[in-house]
Every structure is written in structure tokens, then in C-alpha cells.
Design a protein around this nucleic acid. Structure first.
Lengths: 236, 236
DNA sequence: CGCGTTCTTGATGGGGATCAAGGTGAGTGG
DNA sequence: CCACTCACCTTGATCCCCATCAAGAACGCG
């Protein structure tokens, strides 16, 4: 095996638990069995049984809910290294639809029974997921439009950084303003105006899919953001 | 042991998995070791280590988040039979504060290692919790004030019914209009106006802490609500 | 009875929705 | 190489839902 820079998904997972070389190999093998899913395809359907979990190796997905009248809410984004469909109850049924936002690569993650390391990594990942859901509730319930946008971008930066996909506040997001609106409970028109304002204020640069947050500590203070912490023994 | 009507918490838990008589006894013993927590006390503190899980035997609690400037968001309500602090990662840290809304009774739930039944019940409960968080995100992101209120009340009805605490849409809620506002991202003033409107429209009755939803099927249709389903083999 | 919490009501204002066009840019095909 | 198209972004005008501010009424509760 050649030495090489870890893939984003690999990097993220290995930061969530203490991986042994053997675990690394198990993970690398699982990831080598990946498959491609085209953009807009469903990875999981609300109300349908879940057969097995999936690990996002590359690309972005989203957990969405459609209301009967067509309104759409994006509950969360799924990034490289994130897991889909982890459930512990018998006969699990999906409680949200997951769609690929870009073309993505997924694989079946190693079973948590294979090594306690994986059980630990998945449990940590689940705890983080819950923390992000709670953060999203606070965003939607308490924040004004500008705060929602900045807070979400700060969260994406943190999460992408964990996978090595953000450096110094610079990262790529495959999101349209309409997707952002459906995430933040705002219209795309209003997202547009707020983004322009944020650019004018020097908060960020956003061209194509490239985003740069200029002064993250200042932005965090401005929106009252604190990094979620789910373990006392690690920096996550 | 005398035969008697099951306690709410007991009833809820035993509906989440297939309990054997031995499991019932284990649970009853755990619940007999309950302790009282006064209203407004914290059961868990955001950012502090979690030592052991807790089972709500009686009373209401809430998961809340306080923003640095004093804004408060209630993420969810915890009802009899609900669990607090279930975590699977090592050295877990609380990601939200839990406060008692009323005087409540809590106990340490039987360990999931004690019997697979408990592991199953807890896993099912966790899945339901996640479903409710997702539902809350959709409420805050997509619904108008009237819809948010009715949808939340319908959810509380369903959950209380599972614990035997709601009959035919009649149940008790220890919530002030301000708490409702902090839950739904609205001011108490607006909650007040919307509730009066709902009363006038004949949607509900609310006197003191007694709520009655008059035509639940109609209300569910009005707000586009569907019952969450987390298991294919049970009606939950 | 007095007092704090909660509920209620009115007046006013603003943040964001809605509606409607037009602009931009990348891909497509003749 | 240039029209064409489609998705996305941008901008302006108008409206309304809900926040805010303020004050009173009702309700427990010691």
C-alpha cells in the first residue's frame, strides 16, 4: 500500500475514534467497494424500510421533508464521512428522505460489530448529528435571516474542516440560493439580498461554489455561535 | 404484587418493545427507586459530562438552549416514559440543557445490557426522538403560526396517548403561552392571538392546563401532519 | 387582601414574503 | 460561431404576518 493523503471521508471518521492500523484497512476496503449515485437520486425514502446504512465517501446529500402541498424543508446536509440510515431499532423505517445534491459516492460502512472502534466512531457521529439538528432548531426558531445564513456557513465550515475539505474558512458548497432558502426557512429572493449585504459588509466571498468566510471569530461572536462538543476526551 | 393500571412511563416503554414479565419486574423495580426533582431544576446541563441516563416517570421537562444574548429556544418536551441522556459515545457531553417544567419524578432506567428488550425499547425511543426533532425543524422552517401551534398540539396528543395520558384528544399541558412561544419561534403575544382564533374557529378548547382537540383528523389534514413511523413491525 | 405571574388587548412598525421582470452564464445544437 | 435554452441570480414594488411596545385584566397563591 502506498502512503497517501487520507480521503475526506476517511479523515473524518478516523478523527471520531481511535483507529488502529487494522481498522484503517477495514475502512479502506469498505470504501473501495463504493458505488456512484447520480445527483437528484434518492438514497433513502421517507416511510420506506431501511436495509443497511450508507457512508458518504464523496459529494453532498440532504435530508429533506416534503409537505403535502409541496413545501420543502431541508433538515440537514450530509457531507463526506457522514453516515445515513444508522438505526438500532428492529425493522427500521426511514423518517426522512435523503437525496443526492451532487453526484456522490457511497459505500456500506464496516459493521460496528467488526471492531469497537467503528461502534465508537458511529456513536460519536450520531451524537454530532443530533447536535447539528438541535443547532438547526435554534437557527430557525430564534435567529434573523442574516444570522441564520452565517451560522449555517460557520457550521458547514467546521464540518468540512473535520474532513479536510475546508482550509482557513475557504470551502466549496454545491448549494443554490433556493436550496439555502429551503434550509433556512427563507425565500431565495431574501437569501439573495442577505448574501449581497454580507458581501458588502465584508463578511464573506461567494463566487460559483467557492465560499470564503473572512473573519470566523468575528462572525461566530456576531451570531453567538459555539462549537458543539459531544465528547469530553476529544476536541469534538 | 397487586394488579393495577400501568403507570404512564411504564405503559409507554412497554409499547416500544416486547416486554416479558421478567422485564416488567426489572422496570418496576427501577421505577420504584425514583427521586423527585423540583420544577425549574436542571436535569442536565449543556456542555457538562453526562454520567447516567434518566427516565422520566412523571411530570414534564424540556430541552432548551440559551443564546448568549438571552434568547431561549425549547427544542423538545420530555414526557413521562421519555429518556434523557442516552448516549453511546465514550465520555459523553450534554448538547442541551434539560430543565424540569413541573415537579417531576425520574429514575435510572434499567441498563440495556440487562435484557435485549430494554436495548430495543431505548433504540425505538431514540428513533422517535429524532423523528420529533425533524418534525420540529419542519414546523419552524415551513409552517405559519397557526399551523405550528396545531401541529405541536397534535404531536403532544399522540405522544401523551402512547403513555395513556391523552384520551380522545383531551390532555393536560403545563405550558404557559410564553413557553409555547419559545418553542415555536413566536412571541407569547402572537401565541395568545392565534389561540383565541383557534378557539373561535372551534379547533380546540384550552382552559387552565386542560386541552381538548376537537376534530383531530380535520386538524391533521389542515396542517398536513402525518404520524411518524419508525418501525415496520409496530404501530409506532 | 396583596402581589406576582400569566393572559389579554390595542397601536404601530418592520422583516421578510410575494409578485413580476430582467440579467447572466453555461451548455447545446445547427 | 452564434442562436437558443434552461437554470440560476438579481432587482424593484408592494403587502402582510408577526414583533414590539405598552397597559390593563384575570388568575392563582401565600
Amino acid at each position: 500500500m502506498r502512503t497517501r493523503v487520507a480521503l475526506p471521508a476517511q479523515l473524518r471518521l478516523t478523527r471520531l475514534a481511535h483507529f488502529t492500523p487494522a481498522d484503517e484497512i477495514t475502512l479502506a476496503y469498505a470504501m473501495s467497494q463504493a458505488r456512484i449515485v447520480r445527483a437528484r437520486r434518492e438514497l433513502q425514502s421517507d416511510g420506506r424500510p431501511i436495509t443497511e446504512p450508507q457512508l458518504i465517501v464523496d459529494g453532498w446529500a440532504a435530508r429533506i421533508r416534503l409537505m403535502p402541498d409541496g413545501r420543502r424543508q431541508i433538515m440537514s446536509f450530509l457531507l463526506p464521512g457522514d453516515l445515513i440510515g444508522l438505526c438500532h431499532q428492529p425493522a427500521p423505517v426511514a423518517i426522512s428522505t435523503v437525496i443526492a445534491l451532487t453526484e456522490i459516492t457511497v459505500c456500506t460502512p464496516p459493521s460496528p460489530c467488526e471492531s469497537p472502534t467503528f461502534a465508537e466512531a458511529y456513536a460519536t457521529s450520531e451524537a454530532l448529528d443530533e447536535a447539528y439538528l438541535l443547532a438547526h432548531i435554534t437557527r430557525l426558531g430564534q435567529m434573523a435571516a442574516r444570522e441564520r445564513i452565517l451560522d449555517l456557513l460557520l457550521e458547514l465550515d467546521e464540518r468540512l474542516e473535520l474532513a479536510g475539505l475546508s482550509q482557513h474558512g475557504r470551502f466549496r458548497v454545491p448549494l443554490t440560493q433556493e436550496l439555502l432558502g429551503d434550509t433556512l426557512g427563507l425565500t431565495s429572493v431574501h437569501i439573495n439580498r442577505m448574501l449581497q449585504q454580507a458581501r458588502q459588509m465584508g463578511d464573506l466571498t461567494w463566487k460559483g461554489d467557492r465560499v470564503e468566510l473572512h473573519d470566523r471569530p468575528a462572525l461566530m461572536a456576531a451570531v453567538g455561535r459555539v462549537r458543539p462538543r459531544v465528547r469530553a476526551d476529544m476536541q469534538i
